[in-house]
């Protein structure tokens, strides 16, 4: 039957304020976007501009009124500080070494988690836990495990006879061990994210492709390195870059475990910026140190977006 306009139920005359609002796409769209924009402006945009402003001023925690412009003095001062090159080097070591291990372990985990086995969900849950737990709590847990007197690692090692009578590593007190320890905790913490991202990438490869590779006669290694790895690469790079940004910017692990010690051997730029700007009260100096990372992170962000788009295409 043909329906005429007269058959349609008449639209209620009064839909109310919210009804009209919901019908107006333009207004509704803006309204929906508003919280996100407010968030970005208030918590990212404003602090970034503030940091830029601080880095070229002589502002301290004690400054009253308008600070004065000092040009690039804060940057010059930061570079002149003997701790700075050390922290820059540590930042690179911390970020690159931890990402190296994260990527290798995450690949192994993701590939194993693709297989079906009993108790798979328990393993998945355990791997995700470090990500779910608050970082500071997790780090405090590690702090106890690395304790110079009560370290559960040392006592276990001794009980099992792995550590001899004269072996008693001070995990957070010896320079090389301290760096190793903070990197270990950082790897522990970032592994879940990288694993989940890689797992997503792996399961995104159609099963037919794997079957075709098998039919074409590819052995395990060829299959892995010529089919699986290239196909998962764009997504793996996203995981890598995310991890790198985290490693460059996050200071909680180091702050809780070593506070940059011993002898600045685990001092990274983010902790140095914090100690200079907040603990030391030199807001301008802290901002200048923090901004040294900005170009690196901006480049990372651009790369992430590019790879993410590439992953969409293939």
């Amino acid at each position: 039957m043909k329906q005429t306009a007269g058959d349609l139920p008449a639209r209620p005359a009064d839909t109310g304020f919210f009804g009209r609002l919901a019908d107006d796409e333009k207004v509704l769209g803006r309204l929906m976007l508003a919280p996100a924009i407010t968030y970005i402006v208030a918590l990212i945009g404003f602090p970034l501009l503030l940091a830029l402003f601080y880095s070229v001023s002589n502002v301290t925690v004690g400054t009253h009124g308008w600070p004065s412009f000092v040009g690039l003095a804060n940057f010059r001062h930061a570079i002149g500080n003997p701790t700075f090159p050390r922290a820059l080097w540590n930042t690179l070591v911390f970020a690159l070494v931890s990402q190296f291990f994260v990527m290798i372990l995450a690949t192994i985990l993701a590939i194993s988690l693709q297989r079906e086995f009993r108790g798979k969900w328990v393993v998945r849950l355990m791997i995700l836990l470090p990500w779910v737990a608050p970082i500071s709590l997790g780090s405090i847990g590690w702090l106890w495990m690395f304790d110079s007197v009560y370290s559960v690692i040392n006592w276990t090692g001794r009980a099992l006879g792995i550590f001899g009578k004269d072996t008693w590593p001070i995990w957070l007190g010896q320079p090389t061990l301290a760096m190793g320890s903070v990197i270990t905790v950082h790897v522990w913490r970032l592994l879940p994210l990288a694993t989940v991202i890689l797992l997503g990438g792996l399961s995104g490869i159609p099963k037919d492709i794997h079957d075709a590779a098998q039919m074409d006669g590819a052995g395990v290694l060829r299959h892995h390195f010529q089919i699986t790895v290239p196909l998962v690469r764009p997504i793996a790079l996203v995981a890598l870059l995310f991890g790198t940004v985290y490693a460059f910017t996050d200071m909680i692990v180091i702050y809780v475990l070593t506070r940059g010690g011993p002898y600045e051997t685990t001092q990274v730029l983010s902790t140095l910026a914090f100690f200079t700007g907040i603990d030391g009260g030199d807001l301008g100096g802290g901002a200048a140190i923090a901004l040294f990372l900005f170009p690196v992170l901006a480049a990372c962000a651009v790369l992430i977006l590019r790879f993410a788009r590439q992953a969409e295409v293939t």
């Binding site: 159609p206 037919d208 492709i209 079957d211 075709a212 590779a213 039919m215 074409d216 006669g217 590819a218 052995g219 060829r222 010529q226 089919i227 290239p230 196909l231 293939t314």
Partner: peptide, 27 residues
């Protein structure tokens, strides 16, 4: 045995040339 799949299952990251050469290299 050679198999052709419903989805064709071509390797998206390889050129047509490399796709065709793949079984030869693999063997």
């Amino acid at each position: 045995i050679a198999m052709v799949f419903q989805s064709y299952a071509l390797y998206p990251h390889m050129t047509v040339r490399d796709n065709i050469a793949f079984p030869l290299k693999a063997q």
